[in-house]
Design a binder for these strands. Sequence first.
DNA 1: TTGAAAGCGCTAACAT
DNA 2: ATGTTAGCGCTTTCAA
Lengths: 328, 328
Amino acid sequence: MASTIRDVARSAGVSIATVSRAMREPSIVSVETLRRVRAAADELDYTPSQLGRQLAERRHGANGIVFPDLSGPYYGEVVVGYEDVASELGRAVLILATHGRPAAREMITRLAGRCDGLVVLGHTVSDEALLELAERGVPLVTVARPPVAGVDSVAAENHRTAFALATHLADSGARSVVFLGNPDRSPDVTERRAGLFAGAREVGLEVSELRVETMDEQGGAVAAEHLCQQPALPDAIACANDELALGLMTALRERGVVVPRDVLVTGWDDVMAARYAELTTVRQPLRDLGATAARFLDDLIAGRRAEPRIEVLPTELIVRSSSSPRER
Amino acid sequence: MASTIRDVARSAGVSIATVSRAMREPSIVSVETLRRVRAAADELDYTPSQLGRQLAERRHGANGIVFPDLSGPYYGEVVVGYEDVASELGRAVLILATHGRPAAREMITRLAGRCDGLVVLGHTVSDEALLELAERGVPLVTVARPPVAGVDSVAAENHRTAFALATHLADSGARSVVFLGNPDRSPDVTERRAGLFAGAREVGLEVSELRVETMDEQGGAVAAEHLCQQPALPDAIACANDELALGLMTALRERGVVVPRDVLVTGWDDVMAARYAELTTVRQPLRDLGATAARFLDDLIAGRRAEPRIEVLPTELIVRSSSSPRER
DNA sequence: TTGAAAGCGCTAACAT
DNA sequence: ATGTTAGCGCTTTCAA
């Protein structure tokens, strides 16, 4: 059994209040007392119980972060950026992966009971669930999902860069483009789609949409099959993420389609494989997303902020040969 | 202010003990009382304080997982496998990334004070630090590091598959191979190196070693530069991980070296980019590693296990054209 | 500078 | 089936 504050107090011949003071504010205790307490603590191998502390202080000293999944390169980076800042600020980090489970709401509610505040990423729970938490007074920051009234939010720019992507495709000689993705899967996708459509209209690019069930390589392969059954391929295919684009390119090539000669393909995310596949894509400040959320949350918990904040971090179009006219 | 068990008790006209019972074991309370308590709890929007519970039960209901980093595809998958099982078992998950920081030891000690047990991945802290925790009675499971006396351990097989890799290279026509990596970076690497060396000797393959500073694409590029300055390239280069191999291949090609005609290259991990680069590599059961660790830890915490366990999960050689003789 | 004592919100004997 | 009460290990007034 680990020793408690009482053991140390007895052994040092002081009261527990003095031990407490010696541990948290050594300067307000006489040097001699401090010495004795320290000696006793060392001797007994005493570490203050977090549980005792937390209950007395009525704070957890921990934050939660909720995400759909951690496979794939995306959320891992965001979580790292978050963890880095949070642990710098001396707070523990609790994680929760929802995996699209319907029980997500209860899971998050439970999590909320274990920490001082929550960061919620992407497509994990409904806005109502968040609002309920917010009403209960749980400090909340969302990342990569549309702002919820009164809740802090951090996101990566989608619309403008998707607009720029449309322009780039037109400049590369495309006359038509199809957007490949599933807007139901994530709010980000909806914005990318809207940006691409807006850009396409602006530059006179004929634009349409093809929905996929899953936004992974499998989904890309399915889309390739579908597209190849049409009378003609579009000039360009803008995919909602890289995995989709990679799966698509692979499947197209298996069917003898040459990218980018026969069709331009683009992704979104700039995962590592995108470089090796020479895929034009969009890079997001993933770590920054997490780090910013961590700071926002800390401000909320410390009560340093009243007005809800909405921050949109810039993204960057990365042009590679999968959409480059020079190589066609 | 959130309502407490006393508020509910008063409002329902019962004692706090009854409220406690109604919340945790409804069956031992009369239906009428249960109804009244539930009504009061609903009315007051009562959720039992985790902090109060935890202190009274003297358990955190949470486990920690410690890893070097979450960028790259490796640890993220392990953490997901872990989180999945742990949350299934009703335990919260605390994460800690050490980033090779020297303060890792204190960070882990702090973390240990917040949970009922710890999973420690790879190159994060010294064995002594772990032994100290184990002595303090903290349930512990290590993953992907050499077993520490008395501590449960889960790892992926390295030696045998590295041995098989050497055989494969010899079968592909190689007469010499260099192992590229940095054994100081991770215990896994040491084992892969040993396995490769043993296999190479067995099949009469000339084997040597080249150390890199960093085991990422940058490290691979540096190695390429070094190798190209030698009078001749080896027949094969076995890299300690995929990132190294990918960086190496890219840099070699920039220098006009043709893979696999001029030199065979292999990696380790089977990251997504490896498929697109046609890289021969070794696949590890990452999620399983995490899931197994979670179960081991739960057994320890529940006191279901006395003898320390060591589990080694099998890995699989994935042959692609970067080392295939048929394409040479 | 130090100590006594009253919580923090809950669980779990023990008693009824 | 329910209530009383004594903790769990700490922090923090309030006095001395």
